[in-house]
Amino acid sequence: MADFLQFAFSGLTVGAIYALVALGFTIIYNASDVVNFAQGEFVMIGGMVTVFAYAAGLPLPVAALLAVIVAVFVGLALEWLAIEPARDAPPVTLIIITIGASIFLRGLAQVVFDKQFHSLPAFSGDEPIRIGGAALLPQSFWVLGSAIVIFLALYAFFNHTLTGKAVLATAANRFAARLVGINTTFVMALSFAVSAAIGAIAGVLVTPITLTSYDVGTLLALKGFASAMLGGMGNPIGAVIGGLLVGLLEAFGAGYINSEYKDAIAFLVILGVLFVMPQGLFGRSHTERV
């Protein structure tokens, strides 16, 4: 039982990170149909800027805020300079642009920062909390708690504000949204800004646990993308559940089956789910118009 709890908490913590990245994918995808493979770089920017600002003497909360602002700025720049000019390009071209952007941002980070790994002090100390024989880090609760807060805030934003509803309308039908007077350009910029902010917050939160470096983004983008697809692309609840599931699968796979093939176990389950449910767990079924 203690082992089970330990695995579950490990899975939930890692899963929460995947969920936040998957959420970033989903928001941008909904507003623009773009699968943004530079999503992992927002997490990197969040972690690295905080580390360097903190090392330069800023208090941790200020450093973290600065990191989020930098990430939002990068997200907006990405949208204005790279996505907007290629607006009418085929989806796969846009994907390659975001892959180019992710290589560019990694290249920039290795020049601006360095190629070392860095850490941040945990927000509430390193003393593990013992529950039912399992030892948990206080920082894990920060990650899980913040993920829940972010999700609730997004839910409120999308369902209870006019701007949020405009985003949802754009996601449902961009052309119709424009007809009823929604500024879809603004909606797209907003989606990149929000995604970048979520990524950066995730980066700040997890750095005390997972460490960070200029190239942590690639793996996160890969896992986040897989999580979003498992949950059903375009569905925020699906993204969160997909992320947590992938994290749990890896932890239980490593704990109970075989640590060498734990990533394989996660992907086998994703494949299995997609074979049965081709739209992911919570995806909308899609009818093609001829």
């Binding site: 642009i97 560019f104 290249g107």
Partner: peptide, 15 residues
């Protein structure tokens, strides 16, 4: 600046 340039070139080509 190698990687930075590679990413930049990829974006420019595709745009």
């Amino acid at each position: 600046y190698e990687h930075l340039m590679l990413g930049l070139m990829m974006m420019l080509f595709m745009i």
